[in-house]
Design a protein around this nucleic acid. Structure first.
Lengths: 97, 97
DNA sequence: TGACATGTACGCCAATGGCGTATATATACA
DNA sequence: TGTATATATACGCCATTGGCGTACATGTCA
């Protein structure tokens, strides 16, 4: 793979580090390698069905994640972290759709 | 497809409507059919590279979305809506990874 | 002119989403 | 007992997407 993704990340980091603060609007975000969907859901005291309905996931997808059959891809992992850290915000925004 | 997804949604809605408020913890969320990634990004005054770095998307994926070559799947559309409505929260949470 | 940033464009492949269906278990209720 | 319901586990299937590489056009600035 030759680390091209890492190189790109470094390029972006240099972009960030290189200049003054005013130019560096953006911090580089690291996508978590894995998230514990079941733990997040149980902390919210929801059933699989409730959790799926509340955040717009297909029920089967939540089940696949929790059973380790599938791994949520990048965007889903990010969303799940937001749900973990700020569930009220997530629910509020998503319900206003 | 026979509308099985719709049926499940109805089942969940009945679950919600059936009981008292105390049991109905969860509102059913509708995943937006499409999101305007370019508009969201430009509102934040970011380049594609900045936007990707700030929220953990691969740059190529952002480009695919904006060019209409790919459509962000459900979880990504939800995340994008949160970025649209509460970018500060999204950045804050994701940076604390 | 050259270097660089930005954005468009396309090919490729493994992995996931999204769907169906079957099974197991616990609980509630007639 | 029997049966209905909720909850969760488990697996097969396939189209779509993510994630990667690469090339090209344009604009800007030194």
């Amino acid at each position: 793979m030759s680390g091209s993704k890492i190189l790109e990340g470094l390029k972006e980091a240099l972009e960030y580090a290189g200049g003054d603060e005013s130019k560096a609007r953006v911090r580089i975000v690291k996508v978590p390698d894995q998230v514990d969907v079941k733990a997040i859901r149980e902390n919210l005291k929801m059933s699989q069905r409730e959790f799926a309905a509340a955040f717009g996931f297909p029920l089967a997808t939540v089940q696949n994640w929790e059973q380790g059959r599938r791994k949520p891809e990048g965007s889903a992992r990010m969303l799940l972290r937001i749900i973990e850290e700020a569930p009220e915000t997530a629910e509020r925004v998503l319900q206003t759709g």
